[in-house]
Amino acid sequence: MATVDTAATEAAAPQRRRLVARPSTWVVWALVAAFFIFLIGILVSVLVDSFGRRWFGGWLPEEFTADWYAEAWDRFNMTHVIGVTVGVGVTVVVISVLIGVPAAYLLARRNFPGKQLITLLFLLPIIIPPITYGIPLATVMYNVGLGRTLVAVVLVNLVPSVPFVIMTMTPFIEQINPSIESAARMCGARMKDVFLRILGPLLVPGILAAAILVLVRTVGMFELTFLVSGPPTDTLVVAIYRAMTAAGGGEARSLISAMAVVYTVTMLIILIVALRFVNPTQLVARVPETRDD
């Protein structure tokens, strides 16, 4: 397997210089293989478990059934839970894009006193662990009577999302040639027109990428949601966690697996949509500044 791939690589790019010597090749492939064995093992075993009945050791369960999904729907009111999850996710995406993009624009294009301080302000919620600010934030939410409400769930999820939009959009906006905007202004466009007619269309791919990442993060966000949500406002991850840790050893394992599969399918749909628009490595690479002043 490894040799075939290496041979293919060399055939495809004969000019490429090999940096790491051959003995290391198998170490790398062993690492990747071990990683994928775990990854695929985890995914497939959850999938098999969610359809299985009486799986005590051995390779496969004794019977296969789809009952766990029906039961999960009945017991945990999955339609409601998925509705809450998607609703919270979409609300957070819309608000964080509306707040974040104008701020990212200013950080990308302008210099003003206190710019570094403001950048630090937006960086802090990303660096500080969610629990550190989540617990005081949740305390505030309970004090003002927002505990266990949807408003609180949306608000706490916005805290890391807004800075995240700003941080991913800033390099993206830096990439756009400022002379396009200058030309529009020369032709008499106001700030609103510049945003709606010039920047808007150019920013769509970036906004889409940031929005999808925020959606993935919000749907997967456990810590912050868990601190402020109650059973009627739980998102899917929190509902699964509660089912796993319920008093008395938790729910039947297969029931939880069925919920986990529903979660993965939701995530996969988002991911597949995301990868149609975004190249994963491009998200973390900073684009060089193209400013001309």
């Binding site: 050791g57 796993m244 979660y263």
Partner: peptide, 28 residues
Amino acid sequence: TTLLVLPITLGTVLTAQGLLIFAGRQGW
């Protein structure tokens, strides 16, 4: 690269459930 990004979307709760089944005493 796509396969490598996959676990980012799995989330800790699903990874935990999968590890419990896959690497548990009676797991594969």
